[in-house]
Every structure is written in C-alpha cells, then in structure tokens.
Design a protein around this nucleic acid. Structure first.
Length: 557
DNA sequence: CTGGGGAAGGGGCCC
DNA sequence: TGGGCCCCTTCCCCA
C-alpha cells in the first residue's frame, strides 16, 4: 500500500511552512538578504548544508558564489524540486545556478543545470529566451517531488502573491534579467528579511565574519568558565557560521558536487555539545527550548519572545512580525553619520515626539507617527525608519519609495529646522559648562538631566542617562525590526534570535545568554537560597522570586 | 480551577 | 561595549 503523492504533499507543506516562517530554525545570510529555512530540509538536500546546520543557526554564504536572487531560486528548488518560471532561464542564469549548486553541493540542481547548458549548446537560439528547464524522468535518486520541472505548480505558493499585482514593483521587476546583480528589494519573498540599511557593514567574503548581521557587532560571547560546551558558540561561533564552508573564510569552496566538505573544526566537539540544541538538564523542570521564531496566530514567524511577551496564540494580544525592509541603496552608510545622529538627538526631549527627524547618513529616522502602532492589526509590514505599518508588502514598498523621493528634500528641510533647537553632536560640548550647573558651594560642575533633574557624576553619565528619556529607539533588530534604546540591548536581543548561549552550566549543560543567568542557575544545583523573606522566612534562589513573593504578602495585607 | 513557587527569558538602565 | 542588576513576564509543576 502506498499513499500516492505523499512525498509531494509533504514537501508542499514544508514549503508553505517556510513561506510563513513556521518552525524555521536557521537563517541563511546572502549578502544583504536573510532567508529562513528548515535545517532538516537543507541537510537533506545539500551535503554542504548538512555539514553546517547541526552547528549553526546562522550561515553566511559566499556572495561570490551565490547572489541573493540565485539563492532564492536555489531555495525554491530545494523546497519544490522546480525552478521558477518567473525568471527567464538563460545561459547566464543557469551558469549562476550551476555555480551556486556546486558551491552548495546540490547534486541534483547541478546536474540539471549542466543538462540545461548542454541543451542550450545544442540549441543556441533558445538560450536567451525563457525556456523550461524540465525533465520528464525522475531524478536519479528519486527526488521526492518527482520530475524536475519548470512549473507554476502550487508548490510555488511562496511567491505567488507577488505575481498577483501586475503593475506593482514586483511585477515590473519580473522583467529584469535573471541573475542580474544589484537585486532590488521587491524581488524578495516574504520569508526574506533584509539587513538594515543602518550600520550595515560589509558582508563581503573578506570580512571574515557576519559581524552581527552587518551591524559590525560581535554577537558571540565567551564562556567565562572554560566550559567544555562552548564550542559552537565560542567567540568564533559567528566566524564558524561563515567558515570554513561559508565563504567568508573559504575562498575556494568545493566546486564539484561530489566533493566532500572539509571537516569542521568543531565537528568532533564534546558529546555534550548537543546541549545547545537539546539541553540535557537534570533540573527540576528544564524549560523547553525555544526556537528562534515563535509562530503567531497568523502563521507569521514571531521574533522569539515577542509572541510570549505580548501574548502567544490563545486569544491574547498579538504582535505580529515586523517586516524589516530598509533601503539597500543606503546600506553602506557611513557610521559617522549615525553617530552624529545618535548623539545629536540627545538634546531632543520627549516633547519632540512625533515630529523630530533624525538623520542616519542618507537615511532619516523619524519618530513613529502619533497614534500609529507599528505592526499591529492588519499592518504587518512596517517601515522601520518611520514606524508606519502597511497591510501589504506592495504598499510598504511604495511607501519606502516615498522616503527615497523625499529624502533630499527632507535633508534640506532638516538643515533649516535643526538650525535652532535641534543640536548636533558637534554643537554640544559635553564639557561645556554652559550646559551644566555648578554645585553650590563648590567649583564642581553639576551634571543635571534636563528632563528629570537627576544628577550625574560626569558628562558621559549624563548623556547615557538622558538617552533613557528618548522616545527614539535608535537600534532596530535586523531580524525582527524591534527597536532598542541601546546598542548593547539590541546585541543581546539578537543573540536570542541566533540562539547564541555562550554561558554553559557545567553541571547540566544548560546554556544561557547571560552570565548572570548562569550564576543564578547554579544555585539550582548548589541548593543555595540567598534570598529570604523577612516576613515568613521562606527562601528563594532568585531575588525576583522573592520580590514576587513579597508582593503576595503586600497584596494579602 | 486556582494560586504559589521554581525556573527561566527578555528589556531597561546604570556603571 | 559589556557586566550586573532590576523589573516584568511566562511557563511549568504542584498542592
């Protein structure tokens, strides 16, 4: 007995899940685009990925070997067994695909591309027009989707909606030549998340590391205790994400489909390395391991924590995934400009909310519009710079264009507006006593917060403190778009996306994102309960639980 | 079913 | 920039 088309249906479901980000457990970085996918599917399709996915939740691909647009085709092929018919297939694009297929060790795709190239050689007149890449025979190893095809089968549901908008940006871009570099944002499908334009450092192969998804951030951490379980998230974890197979440190990736990947340095990690993904905690109740994305009611992938914090499925408040789309053209923004932007805004107070624009290089950050709650309700697609939400990617794209069009105008406008109260960094000398009071009776300058009056010990502390009053959240997460007031907080947040837990418990292997959590956790093993209730004597391992307990006392009294 | 406790995740903020 | 701490919150277990 055999269920007909079982494999095909299974793959169809997987592809639909990918399109929604459901259960996606890995992020592939290709130049300026992020692709979510399933480790199992990648590992089953590619020897290359098979060697990487057990160790990394983030893989950076060599942009010399595969471009975002090509990788999108590759990913579609992996999930459907079909090559897109929305992009013309010519020798150039097939060659790009072949390069990528060899690099990623996708034997089926490579064979298909070679076959296509050979076919084109025999019929050169057809090489530059859309030509189906098809095979009526099953793949050599019986690909679950059956015959390879160039089809518009339901398997390609991922991108279908793009084609439903003739005249839209997406629709127009379908006319672009395949493989054309300088790929435009509109070509991306929903599961792709762009790296923010701000602070987006190079992801070039020479960079050697992902650097916090282009933020120039080192998301890796060191385990202070020399734990034996830190290999895959050791300080080089992100390097490992991009090395040795990821291109950054691998200028000569395997070029033949049969080539085996080099053994990873941490391939023979200690057995308890698996604790990263499957903590074998002997603790009373090991908290279930959260994946990088939770799933909201809509099926949209929710940033880890957001769904929980704002209510997981089950009738609670829903915060949907923010779509992170920034201007690609501006991704090489001079960091100095942002620094000015950050610091210059510190003279802006809460009262500026709504109208103040802040400049980030060529990009202008605005306060979210009053009364506008980004990403809530039907407005799934959020423009990070201004916080506006839109019900569709097309509308968001159109909106982003308005930024492009009016930025020059706004910049000029800002020059005028900022002339008065909107001071730039260079306009405010932290040591300028004119912005400080003087301690009565002393010559010591007094650093008072202009908002709350708090006294700080020096100018740096004052600046740090004043930042807490800003409405502007300068540091958006490049994966979920959530903005943060401090870069460090955002970096810490991104570690949770990437599953980087550098601090491992030597007792049970459980891992934590923060050392403080590990210290706290160790009390579970030691039995130490340093926090005692002064009212009833009950002791707690966590101070926060004592505080919670005390609230119980106060509410009862 | 409810409430308390244990354990853990995440963000804000200060140093 | 990162560590440390605080707070809020969630999830699970159990009485």
């Amino acid at each position: 007995m055999e269920q007909q088309e079982h494999a095909k249906q299974l793959l169809l479901q997987l592809n639909q899940q990918r399109s929604k980000g459901y259960l996606c457990d890995i992020i592939i970085v290709v130049e300026n685009a992020l692709f979510r996918a399933h480790k199992n599917v990648l590992a089953a399709s590619s020897v290359y990925f098979k060697s990487l996915v057990p160790h990394d939740n983030l893989i950076n691909l060599d942009t010399d070997m595969v471009s975002p647009s090509v990788f999108r085709q590759v990913l579609d092929f992996i999930y459907t067994g079909c090559l897109s018919n929305s992009d013309p297939i010519n020798d150039h694009s097939v060659s790009s695909l072949l390069t990528a297929a060899c690099y990623l060790q996708l034997t089926e795709l490579a064979a298909l591309c070679r076959k296509k190239l050979k076919h084109n050689d025999q019929t050169p007149s057809s090489s530059n027009k859309p030509t189906p890449v098809s095979s009526t025979s099953p793949t050599p190893n019986g690909h679950p989707t059956g015959p390879l095809c160039l089809s518009s089968t339901p398997l390609r549901a991922t991108h279908q909606h793009h084609n439903n908008h003739s005249g839209s940006r997406e629709g127009n871009r379908r006319n672009q030549r395949p493989g054309q570099e300088g790929r435009l944002r509109g070509d991306l499908s929903e599961e792709e998340v762009f790296i923010s334009g701000s602070r987006c450092a190079s992801l070039s192969p020479s960079s050697g590391k992902v650097n916090g998804l282009g933020l120039g951030l080192d998301l890796s951490k060191r385990s202070p205790s020399g734990s034996t379980t830190t290999d895959e998230v050791s300080p080089s974890s992100l390097n490992q994400s991009s090395s040795p197979h990821s291109s950054s440190l691998s200028p000569t990736p395997p070029t033949t489909a049969s080539a085996k990947p080099e053994p990873r340095e941490n391939q023979e990690a200690p057995a308890n390395t698996s604790a990263v993904l499957q903590p074998r905690s002997p603790c009373k109740r090991p908290r279930h391991h959260r994946e990088a994305f939770d799933l909201g009611e809509t099926g949209k992938a929710l940033p880890n924590g957001l769904a929980k914090r704002h209510g997981a499925p089950g009738g609670k408040k829903l915060v949907r995934e923010k779509r992170v789309i920034m201007k690609l053209e501006d991704r090489e923004v001079d960091g100095e400009d942002l620094d000015h932007s950050e610091d210059s805004s510190h003279s802006g107070s809460e009262g500026d909310g709504g109208g103040k624009r802040r400049r980030n290089g060529n990009y202008i950050f605005r306060q979210p519009q009053p009364g506008f709650e980004p990403g809530v309700g039907d407005n799934l697609y959020v423009c990070i710079p201004c916080g506006k939400g839109f019900p569709s990617s097309e509308q968001l794209n159109a909106h982003v264009d308005t930024h492009t069009q009016d930025e020059v105008y706004l910049e000029d406008e800002d020059e005028d507006e900022e002339g008065g109260s909107y001071l730039k960094e260079e306009d405010v000398d932290p040591d300028d006593s004119s912005s400080q009071g003087v301690e009565p009776g002393t010559n010591e300058p007094q650093y008072l917060c202009t908002v709350c009056g708090k006294s700080c010990k020096d100018a740096a502390s004052l600046r740090q403190h004043e930042k807490s009053h800003w409405l502007n959240r300068t540091f958006p997460c490049n994966i979920c778009g959530k903005p943060f007031t401090q870069r460090g907080t955002m970096t810490r947040h991104m570690r949770s996306h990437l599953g980087l837990k550098p601090f491992a418990c030597e007792e049970c292997g459980m891992r934590f994102t923060r050392q403080y959590r590990l210290v706290e956790h160790m009390r579970v093993h030691s039995g130490e309960k340093p926090y005692a209730c002064q009212l009833c004597g009950v002791k707690f391992t966590q101070q926060r639980n004592l505080l919670s307990h005390l609230k119980m006392h106060t509410s009862a009294s």
